[in-house]
Design a protein around this nucleic acid. Structure first.
Lengths: 168, 168
DNA sequence: CAATTTAGTCAGATACCCTTACTATATATT
DNA sequence: AATATATAGTAAGGGTATCTGACTAAATTG
């Protein structure tokens, strides 16, 4: 029983964090045009991980429909953040390429540590990372079970993104 | 320097969790409609905290425009989750009232424990709750600084929501 | 070569938000 | 009272993120 309550509390906190973070983003960082993990931003992030992907590949990796992908890519083209080139092997395929401006956007927006993270101590940061790793691992497993390609791709996407941080 | 890396890693993990949880919800629990802290859900949550508010009051508390509020309220009316009554004192005012169905929606959507939480031990759950509390507290403070009414109200809103869990 | 699969697009929807009018009702001022 | 101003809400229209269905254009397969 005790465990159940603890679990509920933690789940509640997690939900609270999620909801709050939406509001937080809205309110706090209006200044800098932030790269969101949605729509166009999602595409850019995926390209930062691996450039010259086809729209189809992007759609699959990001879990959005090819139609939405097409829409976002076109907007990015309009803003000169990516270009499209036809694949020489398969002329149906549009390869999506980051422009230098696109890359700059990603860099400048990349992973700022939000201020609220700074309130945690070193030990707490370690704890948090490790707990979240457990959680995400379990999530990946579930996602994987439901749709194996998506899960694997996602993992790869995020993994390489956060590994990059380490190298710096 | 070490701290900076730890912070970046934790921030990354948090971002990863957020991103993942969207997809997770999509894939894993399509069944139940989840109450978000946006749009219509936000309105319902505010009403759960205090019923019979005017649209203006809702708009102010939730930090959305009166126009959007009107839109969401009207949708909720259409779905029979709230009703509108003119205030007797001031006939400009529309009071928004939860229907029993609306109340049921809120209850049923309330805090299910997602399966991935169950992979954590008791100790880990405690740790996670406490870390997230620190984080959300810091977030509330920032939100508060930017827009005091909203921050306070939100806090109250969430607090009452998660306190309810405990009583059970 | 015909049939099928795959990549991408177009059109049309919905949800969440905003801004700029505009209406109706209250309240304050003269 | 009559006029002016403030307040609650609505209407219209726009932008972003997504989705589904229908369709075209290549590639692959039999």
């Amino acid at each position: 029983m005790a465990n159940k309550i603890k679990a509920e509390l933690a789940a509640g906190k997690l939900a609270e964090y999620e909801q709050l973070s939406k509001i937080y983003d809205d309110i706090i960082k209006q200044a800098r045009p932030r790269l969101t993990v949605q729509g166009q931003g999602k595409i850019l992030l995926a390209l930062a991980d691996e450039d010259h992907l086809s729209q189809r590949e992007l759609a699959t990796r990001l879990g959005i429909s090819p139609q939405s992908t097409s829409e976002f890519v076109n907007k990015l083209v309009k803003y000169h953040l990516v270009t499209l080139t036809k694949s020489p092997n398969d002329r149906r395929i549009n390869l999506v390429n980051l422009t230098s401006e696109g890359r700059k956007q990603i860099e400048s927006a990349a992973q700022e540590v939000p201020p609220f993270i700074k309130t945690l101590s070193d030990t707490e940061l370690d704890q948090l990372s490790s707990l979240l790793s457990k959680i995400t691992t379990a999530m990946y497993a579930d996602i994987d079970a439901a749709n194996s390609t998506l899960g694997v791709k996602l993992h790869k996407l995020f993994a390489s993104r956060y590994l990059k941080q380490f190298k710096k």
